[in-house]
Design a binder for these strands. Sequence first.
DNA 1: CTTGTTTAATAAACACTGTTCAGTAATTTT
DNA 2: AAAATTACTGAACAGTGTTTATTAAACAAG
Lengths: 202, 202
Amino acid sequence: MGISERKEREKLQMRQLVLAAATEMFIQEGYDRTSIRNIAEKIEYSPATIYLYFKDKTEILEAIMEQGFGMLNQEFSKVIHLSDPMERLKGLADCYLHFAHDFPEYYDLMFIMKTPVENVVEEDDWDCGHQAYMTLFQTVQACQETGKLKVQDPHAASLMLWSILHGMVSLHIRKRLIFFPEAQLDAIIHHCASEMVRLVSA
Amino acid sequence: MGISERKEREKLQMRQLVLAAATEMFIQEGYDRTSIRNIAEKIEYSPATIYLYFKDKTEILEAIMEQGFGMLNQEFSKVIHLSDPMERLKGLADCYLHFAHDFPEYYDLMFIMKTPVENVVEEDDWDCGHQAYMTLFQTVQACQETGKLKVQDPHAASLMLWSILHGMVSLHIRKRLIFFPEAQLDAIIHHCASEMVRLVSA
DNA sequence: CTTGTTTAATAAACACTGTTCAGTAATTTT
DNA sequence: AAAATTACTGAACAGTGTTTATTAAACAAG
């Protein structure tokens, strides 16, 4: 009986419809300013219908976060082929800044916003995020094996690099860098990133 | 006529009453989960009364942010007497981490949360924040004058230091460091901070 | 083709939220 | 004592996320 299979297809399609609308609105208007009713109106369904496909608003957000990590990992894949570990590291940093610049709302949801469920984020749900981190970590390790790194602990070195990038990006997105000239901010941020890579390398 | 002066005193006292209640609740429960009605109930007034002393919820938040920056600047004042610029810089970093660790909710409001008014934060409102930044910047400049810094531009060096601290702290607060062992996280963060200071110094 | 059953969708309600405003009660001024 | 100012509040408005009883449609079995 192909009926149940068609139904499953339709169910997935409907979920996708909700997700597409939600993504567009979250990215354009932000998570807080997008209501379930707005999403429902956009896809011409009742608000209650959305709850047949997502348990609550945070489950929609989680799905979009996964999309975002997929996009980031794809960005990363553009430079992981670089054979020189230091070049690769520099490339990853550039990708990260690029992603944050092009998709600030995705970045917000993925790295700045309050975690959906307050208490726990299970590591399983974060395997996309984990994958992104492992890409960084392995590159740092590779750099270290060539003896070109000034920081011993690879976890510490990874955290330092990630943190400086995230620090600059999130302060920028959340408008805490108003002391710096807006016009040159992107240049300054890129400069700092490359300086950082220079500093950690011997 | 002492009456108008008494009234002014009472008005200020009332504002303080609202602020004290709001602070406690924002810090304990978070900004989003604290409603105007909750605050009103706590001080045993009608919700509408609060709007006689604060234009809206974000104005309360702004007042609390100022408090927070006052506290941070006070922390800073404990180490600005250190004569060696590099020691001073290290001290500032420790103060920053300390503050974030002791008052994560204040930190959240000050550095992570969406800016109250979406469009602009006037630089005037931020002079407490500006002061905190200037403390860092001047210390970096002093380090540079002794020729002990590896980064030319003092603005870039300041941004790098601030960003790495904010990056680690905000990722931690927003639970994005679940790959790292929870028990050792504070130690790792402090380690990274001192490593960073070591790296930027010649 | 007509039952009975499962499924999908929704209208309406619940308990909230920030905010405004007309109206009341108390205080101060004349 | 009357008038004017001030402080305060109840009730409402327009919105939020979410749940539930009910309806309409699609399917399965006789």
